[in-house]
């Protein structure tokens, strides 16, 4: 999956517009980065990437780029 496609998945998850996110976006500066979106991210990782993301790993994510890296 290309970085663009991965970003599109995240934008859809956060209900943001295309182009709103980039690898440099700092998660804590996003209003959408709340406990529900963290749960959504766990589901997304499991559905799309077959990865079992935990709350502890989520805490290590600082930027959107960290999430993209985790997607692999």
């Amino acid at each position: 999956m290309s970085e663009k496609e991965k970003l599109a998945l995240l934008e859809d998850m956060f209900e943001l517009d295309e182009g709103d996110l980039s690898a440099d976006t700092v998660l804590d500066e996003l209003d959408e980065w709340d406990s529900m979106s963290k749960l959504s991210l766990i589901v997304l990782m499991s559905d799309e990437f077959e990865k079992k993301l935990t709350g502890d790993t989520i805490m290590t994510f600082k930027t959107v780029g960290d999430i993209l890296n985790y997607m692999g």
Partner: peptide, 9 residues
């Protein structure tokens, strides 16, 4: 269940 939440929740 706990694994999915952050400390605040």
């Amino acid at each position: 269940f706990l694994n999915r939440y952050d400390e605040n929740s």
